[in-house]
Design a binder for these strands. Sequence first.
DNA 1: CTGAAAGCGCTTACAG
DNA 2: CTGAAAGCGCTTACAG
Lengths: 350, 350
Amino acid sequence: MSKNLSRIRPTISDVAELAGVSIATVSRVLNDPTVVADVTVERVQDAIGALNYRPHAAARVLASRKTKTIGLMLHEISGSFFPPMLAGIETGAREHGYDLLIHATPIQDTKQHLPPALGEHNTAGLLIFTDSIADEEIGRLHNLGFPQVLLHRSAPEGLDIPCVTFENKAGARKLVDYLIEQRGYRRIAFLKGPEGNEDSFWRETGYRESLENHHLPVEPELIGFGGFHGEEAAHTIETWLKQGLDVEAIFAGDDESAAGVVTALHAAGLKIPEDIAVVGFDDVPLSRYLTPALTTVRAPIKTAGYEAARQLINLIEVGEAEPLILLPTHVIIRRSCGNTEEEEVVLGET
Amino acid sequence: MSKNLSRIRPTISDVAELAGVSIATVSRVLNDPTVVADVTVERVQDAIGALNYRPHAAARVLASRKTKTIGLMLHEISGSFFPPMLAGIETGAREHGYDLLIHATPIQDTKQHLPPALGEHNTAGLLIFTDSIADEEIGRLHNLGFPQVLLHRSAPEGLDIPCVTFENKAGARKLVDYLIEQRGYRRIAFLKGPEGNEDSFWRETGYRESLENHHLPVEPELIGFGGFHGEEAAHTIETWLKQGLDVEAIFAGDDESAAGVVTALHAAGLKIPEDIAVVGFDDVPLSRYLTPALTTVRAPIKTAGYEAARQLINLIEVGEAEPLILLPTHVIIRRSCGNTEEEEVVLGET
DNA sequence: CTGAAAGCGCTTACAG
DNA sequence: CTGAAAGCGCTTACAG
């Protein structure tokens, strides 16, 4: 089939012949028409239209040593976090004329090489949202001068690779501050995200800082595993309830976990927030649909994706990027924490 | 920078030189080592390792006239429908060694050309999940013999392009059958999805068929707009409530809409299912987290994506594919329709 | 089992 | 403003 195709598809030579110019000229009108005489441009464009010519992308890449596609490596395509992030990246890429190549790494095999398709020859740069790529591989690419930007994770020791994420720590701290100061809770639990997840790490840090600032003890038994996953979180809550753990409020780590917590609590016949308050993080659409509506922290997930794409493209084209972009977050007060106002309240909105 | 890179990066010639063979031999061990003597393979692989050589993808594409990437065109990256679909596509592609290039079309500009990056030169085939690509463009590619597979939509008039979707009509019909036969509802509303959405069209058709089969009238006032979107659906419900519309049950078109319906109903102080029953379609994770848990139709979203990728790759490699794949769906009975069993029930599960 | 050589479809100095 | 020519890094008949 490809044989036939290549016979049917016009090349730059066909266009040149029909327009009565050299292929160099056709190439110029493709890349920068201003350097070509207007009449010539017109003739060439007519020929392109008549033949329905489309330049061969791989040939352009090879000849120009430039490619207009960026790669995205991530570990998992799921959850409500993923769509806005990807939408942001895609928008950022498209605005600058770049295409997006996606590669999801199976979770099991951590620490691997770059798949050839995302390699330094196929892609102008790489967005990394996973830790299942070996530090050595990141280092190798970095030493090659291959542009990379990290999303929601930090660079391997000693490598100055730009990172984009949002204010997890401050957001979590303010959220817990609110629970303590405005709601009067003392025994507040925290559910961790997946092992090694840096968003989770900083949220936990914010949680701890808030407790410490208020001279409350950080109780190990109040820190459980939620995995940023509804069912995992529900499972932890079921266990806690069985054990008769005494908690006033649960900071579920993210909204997905919070949804699981809410379900588990309801299933046990407990009322939210009367019996136990629940709060999340991210403010994904889901959080509004929970009953009661979820108090959470609004995270600019889409903007982070967008910024990451922009930084990467800047790195590719100009050679520079912000070392660290930390986007602000805002606490969103809804009913699940004990608030009784009709409307949601945004704390710290400017 | 790219200048530096190209100087640093080893090419096939460097490997050939180091291994003391021709570039043809290096190419062979890259593509089919069995045709090369074992000792030679070893020497070449040592050289590849020593130089950290990676073949240049674009050069391979150009020389071989084959590319191992498929394109995906879609209109929007959002909602709980999207992640499983993409995950399925990505898995299907990766299993066969293909990469995935994603292009989201802005919603406003409908009926457009293919972006060059997804063009017939850059990609071995295309998965289309949008109707904002002009029929003529699909036709042009089809006539060129360019492999395409459609997801959740049918082909333009007269073109035999494979489609992958699931049983929307039968699923919707069985769901409404259940509401009528087992729950005794008579006045059942339906919320349409986005204009032109074929999933919505077939769901509505199933809804109508069920009513007709039970000799119930199809009341135009009971058919509203939900847009497969929580807020749109909530808005319709608010309007209905203001008008004092008399409804017993609402089939929200999809789960996202159902979530909006649930919120709107709760906000109005109505009880689900006592005052009004609500059901959805898709069985995305969200549906379990609603209160009460949502009765819905389980749709194999991920499998559909996976199958679409498989069909496309089959079309690319073997030249054939199923003209139509219609994956089965199953009604999932939970609490929101008036069911009182603790556990969810799957109807028609084999 | 291996090499020399043509060719994939472009871009880009270099001349003019 | 335009053309001739080299070259991007591979693959693949064709010989041997």
